[in-house]
Nucleic acid binder design. Structure first.
Length: 587
RNA sequence: GCGCCCGUAGAGGAGUCCGGUCGUCCUCACCGCCCUGUCAAGGCGGAGAUCGCGGGAUCGAAGCCCGUCGGGCGCGCCA
């Protein structure tokens, strides 16, 4: 049907007869000579129609509408002197058209198909097939393909076998909410869509597969955000006879290679490691952005004797006073400072105190009159603030204070333009706690997942560390994993801490524990989020932008209309009766 | 679940705080005419909107109040 792609034509094709197929991107009609940019996946090429030389083709070109699909025949020739377009890869040539055939006429599109358009995202999703015609979007999908290709080549070279695991599996109590699929053959029972192939990949280790990986879709019925969707793709990895170093050693060269090939930047391996404890103390987050400084300091000692009630009462009740120096932040306007305070409250902090450092130890602050000069000096020393910096202080329960400070630090980095683009700072988070106390549920829960091996025999839930690790890049969690438990008794003990009775353990996880009785190799693995990686590599700030057909933030798909009610007959077959009207979340 | 923001011709935006002069304006797209080297072509003209939806107070609402739907962002949730 065609001899070349539109976007591939170059000076070397000079004189060739060509047949091209593509979409009409733009028409420029000069009354006589008419130009059309023809677009396909590979790019744009300029078609030329002269009324004298090709009267029929020229006449046909007058009726071509934007986004119509056409097939043209003609000849490639160099553009005349002075009309070369250096902004176009095909800009040295043009195609003189002899014949035009409309393969499919298009209505006027609901939004312009061009990169600089900023059409409403909902509209773009509703007409995703048009949105994806934009070269930028096509480029993202191509980038995604390249990255997945690099991953597969890497894993294959290291001897990993890609094995598929079921989409219809069993619901387990721990973790995120499951998407459920009713069974028709077994009325009243449900499959669950996998949150991850966690248990199955462990069973593959018991099966002796040794090195498994899978590019796999995972589904979690939780509220989506800009960096997390209902369904997402991960690189799932599991290995036998390994410790932490072996797993990290598979991922590090892979990610260094991806950054090298995609960004042209060399990243040193191994990546630095930082304990969970240090990360939280220094950055208020277990996924810090290390492209800039602004480390945090515990200011409790500075305010141990303070007369400022808001601080002293927090300290008395077990909270913390913590802050950091925003580099150059003293130049922020009063209005910006007020917005900071509002923003911190929006993140759940009780409040935010700022203090602008001025020369010779002077300081500006809304609480200046409550602070002694020693306290001001202590603040500056603790946070390392220089003249011109802005010290930001939050006093609250540790969890809330850290969330607020982490948000502030990220916000300040953007506001004060401290982020260096083109820098890729990987860091491993290691030695997180094994358990954490859930206020909501009133019990201990796994920080990672219940199959994670403890770092020591001691399983005191308050102190136990996990043999787990997360990979962090520029403030985003790219993935995480752990060395797993492979002894049935240890696994039972973990479930016991999690509050499962032996009977519940057998019921929900009997298949796993039974497997461990038949010769389970020590094993461990990791799961890496691909959408988020592609998002960072593409320079996007929402994973929706790197998924061909994403859901909106409310979990709906404007293109297909999913989720949608189903007919009475379908429900009856499944033995399901609705207790809520469709379209409403139950209380 | 909580909080904040957005919804105005086909697209993007201004107008909303402070009700009347607003269905007023800008850019692009669309339609018509002109134009033989443009590439975000250019010039002239034109058409196109129950201001997301419903209710309320008011002589009067795009604007104020209540509700609702859709979308985005942050927190919670996301082993």
């Amino acid at each position: 049907m065609r001899t070349h792609a539109c976007g591939e034509l170059r000076a070397q094709h000079d004189g060739r007869p060509v047949t091209l197929c593509g979409w009409v991107a733009r028409r420029r009609d000069h009354g006589g000579v008419t130009f059309i940019d023809l677009r396909d996946r590979e790019g744009l090429v300029q078609l030329v129609f002269h009324p004298k030389d090709q009267p029929e083709a020229h006449a046909a070109a007058q009726d071509l509408k934007a986004e119509s699909v056409v097939r043209v025949t003609g000849g490639v020739r160099p553009r005349p002197e002075g009309t070369v377009n250096p902004n176009l890869p095909t800009g040295e040539v043009e195609v003189v058209v002899d014949t035009v055939e409309v393969l499919s006429a298009a209505d006027t599109p609901p939004f312009p198909i061009e990169d600089r358009t900023e059409a409403d995202e909902n509209l773009r999703l509703k007409f995703r097939y048009l949105d994806l015609r934009r070269p930028e979007m096509t480029g993202v999908l191509r980038l995604r393909h390249r990255i997945i290709r690099i991953i597969r080549d890497h894993m294959d070279a290291l001897g990993f076998l890609e094995v598929e695991t079921p989409i219809l599996t069993r619901s387990t109590p721990e973790g995120a909410r499951d998407f459920l699929v009713p069974s028709r053959l077994w009325p009243g029972t449900f499959y669950a869509l996998p949150q991850s192939p966690q248990q199955l990949k462990q069973l593959l280790m018991v099966a002796g597969l040794d090195r498994y990986y899978q590019i796999v879709r995972c589904l979690r019925d939780e509220r989506p955000t800009s960096e997390r969707g209902l369904e997402f793709t991960q690189l799932d990895v599991e290995m036998s006879f390994v410790g932490e170093q072996d797993v990290l050693g598979v991922i590090e060269p892979l990610y260094a290679q991806i950054v090298r090939e995609i960004q042209g930047v060399e990243v040193p391996v191994p990546f630095p490691r930082m304990t969970y404890h240090d990360m939280l103390a220094r950055f208020g987050s277990d996924k810090p952005d290390l492209r800039y400084g602004m480390e945090m300091a515990d200011l409790g000692p500075v305010f141990a004797e303070t007369g400022f009630r808001a601080f002293s009462s927090v300290l008395e009740s077990g909270g913390i006073v913590k802050g950091f120096a925003a580099t150059g932040g003293a130049r922020l306007s009063r209005k910006q400072l007020d917005e900071l305070v509002q923003g911190a409250k929006g993140r759940g902090a009780a409040g935010l105190v700022w203090l602008a450092c001025e020369p010779e130890g002077a300081a500006r602050s809304p609480i200046e009159k409550y602070l002694s000069s020693q306290e001001i000096a202590g603040l500056r020393a603790g946070t390392g603030a220089e003249d011109g910096d802005l010290v930001l202080i939050v006093a609250d329960a540790p969890g809330r204070a850290n969330v607020a400070l982490d948000g502030l630090r990220r916000e300040q980095a953007g506001l004060l333009e401290l982020v260096r683009e083109g820098e890729w700072r990987f860091v491993w988070m290691v030695e997180p706690p094994l358990f954490e106390w859930s206020e909501d549920e009133g019990k201990w829960v796994s920080v990672h997942h219940p199959f994670t091996a403890p770092a020591s025999e001691d399983m005191d839930p308050r102190a136990a560390r996990a043999r787990a690790y997360d990979l962090v890049l520029n403030g985003f969690e790219l993935g995480g994993g752990s060395i797993r438990i492979h002894q049935p008794d240890v696994q039972r003990k973990v479930f016991e801490v999690l509050g499962l009775t032996p009977r519940e353990t057998d019921e929900k996880f009997g298949h796993l524990i039974r497997a461990f009785r038949y010769g389970a190799p020590p094993h461990g693995g990791i799961a890496m989020g691909i959408d988020r990686l592609v998002m960072l590599m593409a320079g996007k700030d929402a994973i929706r932008d790197v998924i061909a057909f994403p859901k909106s933030q409310s979990g709906s798909d404007p293109l297909t209309g999913a989720p949608a009610p189903v007919g009475e007959e379908q429900l009856r077959e499944l033995g399901i009766r609705l207790s809520a009207e469709p379209g409403r979340e139950e209380e």
